[in-house]
Nucleic acid binder design. Structure first.
Lengths: 217, 217
DNA sequence: CTTTGAAAAGTTACATGTAAATCCCTCTTG
DNA sequence: CAAGAGGGATTTACATGTAACTTTTCAAAG
């Protein structure tokens, strides 16, 4: 038996290109030339071609037949549409988490929320951001629904892509307050309230995006 | 300029394999051998390979490294999870449709609903099913959110795959009644009520799946 | 009759070949 | 100086070659 799965060249190339896109080394609109990338990565054209097909499928790149692929961008309008979807998916994940989970999850979430609050109080943005992501991740995992996890991953991919150009936050303090509200509903074992609180959290972020788009209210 | 886009061999192969999977000609678990399919379709291995990568990505096939791809199946458990996601997505689409749409949509929906009711009364299952799908399609399009449309398409793909083995219906009459409820809320211009009615429609279908899974209530 | 294992067959994954389409630069023309 | 035609360079898309790996077959051993 092999100790670890022998990673395919295609997988490495795919991961490398993803990293380069998220890092901004391959900016939006950059052409993804198969021969050029193959040469620069020191592999043949086949695995590069397949990696690009995957990037197109996860919408990190766009392709027109016979014209090749370019790195995708995310318009503010698209991002708002994505957040509309994210709102209901995070709501679902949170409701399912409440329906499934026991005290163990509640206690873990409480710990993470505490860390989050301390980090915000200490103006430690890195730690705050990490606690924020952990909070959401724990809820998704507890939802025990692989479909919603997958769809939220797709959403997350697009959000990361958008992050290169667009800021999405209402500030660390509001994030903590929203999470506290979600936690309270979850701790009370109220699935409907938890779903609503999670939706409100995302809806709030979406409204800041809408403001940036020049549509206040 | 070309009159119609020159279809790539890859595209034709992909479509052909999709059709064969949905038609049951390639049943769940069937191995997708690249050389065998290339020979049977009269093309080289390259476009077949790429078509299979796409099938894997849309989860019509599963692949293990170095072991090839097989046609996917959808367990009842997965299907229920998919319907949990579908519930909130259809709810979102319906709410957005109400927020965007004018009388034109309402009138079109009313017509389709009328056709649906007549088809059910006449026990014309084909016409009823078509009206059912049209009703949902009109709402999705009116939502004017490409993200939710895409995600519902993904859901639809999995549902079609499951259809080969699992029946998903509560009967034509209940479908019409659900649609009538959705329509009423939409016609009243009440986004929240429309979202709820759409969710209830899918939740009803999901509960019949849960019953089949041996978990009544 | 079941188990074992080694050879044969078939397949995957990566590499490379190539015709046709597209891109891009330059040089001409109005 | 802008517009556009020509032509070489590049690229895509499909085809094919091949080493390594997996699966299958089948005969011998237990």
């Amino acid at each position: 038996m092999t100790v670890a799965s022998d990673p395919r060249v295609t997988d490495r190339v795919h991961q490398e290109l993803r990293d380069q896109i998220f890092a901004g080394e391959l900016p939006a609109g950059a052409r993804l030339s198969v021969p050029a990338l193959a040469a620069s990565l020191g592999v043949s054209r086949s695995p590069v071609r397949e990696a690009i097909v995957r990037l197109v499928h996860e919408r990190l790149a766009r392709e027109e037949p016979r014209r090749g692929a370019v790195v995708a961008d995310v318009s503010l309008k698209s991002l708002i549409a994505i957040y509309e979807v994210r709102e209901v998916l995070e709501g679902l994940a949170t409701r399912l988490a409440v329906e499934n989970a026991g005290r163990r999850l509640i206690r873990t979430l409480e710990d993470v929320l505490g860390e989050h609050e301390r980090a915000v109080a200490a103006v430690d943005l890195t730690a705050a951001s990490e606690a924020d992501m952990t909070f959401h991740r724990l809820i998704r995992e507890a939802a025990d629904n692989p479909e919603v996890v997958r769809m939220l991953d797709e959403v997350q991919t697009q959000v990361r892509l958008a992050m290169r150009t667009t800021q999405v936050t209402r500030g660390p303090k509001l994030a903590v307050a929203d999470h506290r509200a979600i936690f309270t509903a979850m701790a009370a074992g109220d699935p409907a309230a938890a779903e609503q609180a999670a939706r409100a959290h995302i809806a709030g972020l979406r409204s800041t995006l809408a403001e940036q788009a020049g549509e206040p209210r």
